[in-house]
């Protein structure tokens, strides 16, 4: 970058007008992009917080410490705390299998991993209702054995897992494929056990992709509405997650409370964003080195 700039400075006569023109275009593009971002991303966020605080801080605090809101918060965090580690483990195993081995049906498997992206979340939820609902395939058996899946925590976890599964795998597969397996082979020839190889070589090699995947997966797990709405049963204070709670409050004409709870979600999203930015900023050098060094 610095090379480019000094080069253009050293030849002002030749490049001057072209440069000025492209600067105008650049300014226009940047301006458009920033305006767009401000209108469509930043403004809504501001409005969420404005609406939430519209009736003062006390009302706001009351709204987010109300038992149902707290329960929704707890449920949302719990679901994320279960879903994210499972998706990380399954995602790593799946990506590794796909990146390392050639086998019949590999392409099908890769497409299957993407399936949750192309299936509407509502359908995802309905799939579980069809499987585990009272009228579903396993419903009668489950009921007989007193196991609750649908309209309870397990169903919410399953639906969330389905929707968020691709995030980790999608980040990891291309990265693992470009890395190849020689690092792992090198570790094996140096006497490392498969576990040592995995934890000391494979994992550190993909840790940035993995962290991105985890952040995205977590953000979606906490924010998922459609699939969860179908399998939740919307039992207040029991099976309502934060997004469902927002909808419920809004429909109950409790706009301020709805936005207060929404602000919690927005806050969680901002933390995710901040975590991502800090990671990128802090490890920019290391990430760049990892990507370019082969």
């Amino acid at each position: 970058m610095s090379k480019m700039i000094s080069a253009s400075r050293s030849q002002p006569a030749r490049n001057g007008s072209a440069l000025r023109e492209s600067n105008a275009v650049k300014a226009l593009l940047i301006g458009t992009a920033l305006t767009f971002l401000a209108l469509f991303l930043f403004l809504p966020l501001v409005i969420v917080f404005m609406e939430a605080l519209q009736r003062g801080l006390t009302t706001y605090l009351e709204a987010i410490t109300e038992p149902d809101a707290l329960s929704a918060m707890r449920l949302t965090l719990l679901v994320a705390a279960i879903v994210v580690p499972i998706n990380v483990i399954v995602g790593i195993a799946g990506s590794w299998t796909i990146a390392r081995f050639d086998f019949r049906g590999k392409n099908l498997l890769v497409s299957l991993i993407d399936l949750p992206f192309s299936v509407s979340p509502v359908i995802a939820g309905l799939i579980y209702v069809l499987l585990f609902g009272a009228q579903g395939y396993f419903g009668p058996w489950l009921r007989e054995h007193g196991i609750e899946i649908i309209f309870a925590l397990p169903g919410i976890v399953l639906a969330t897992m389905f929707v968020t599964f691709p995030f980790v795998a999608r980040e990891l597969i291309p990265h693992m494929e470009t890395l190849g397996s020689t690092d792992e082979e090198a570790a094996l020839t140096l006497g490392a056990s498969p576990w040592q190889t995995f934890f000391k070589i494979t994992l550190p090699n993909v840790k940035w992709s993995l962290l991105y995947g985890v952040l995205l997966c977590n953000a979606r797990a906490m924010g998922e509405f459609g699939a969860v709405a179908v399998v939740s049963g919307k039992i207040r204070g029991v099976t309502t997650t934060l997004p469902l709670q927002v909808e419920i409050l809004y429909n109950e004409y409790m706009g301020t409370a709805a936005f207060a709870v929404a602000s919690l979600l927005a806050f969680l999203a901002l933390i995710t964003l901040a975590a991502k930015t800090i990671l990128e900023w802090h490890y920019a050098k290391e990430i760049a080195a990892m990507r370019h060094n082969s």
Binding site: F132, G133, A134, Q135, G136, I150, F151, G233, R236
Partner: peptide, 20 residues
């Protein structure tokens, strides 16, 4: 006492599907 609210038809469907 726990409450679940939604569209009447959808709620019936949910009960049919196993909401306890």
């Amino acid at each position: 006492i726990r409450q679940s609210h939604g569209g009447s038809g959808a709620q019936a469907r949910t009960v049919i599907d196993g909401l306890n």
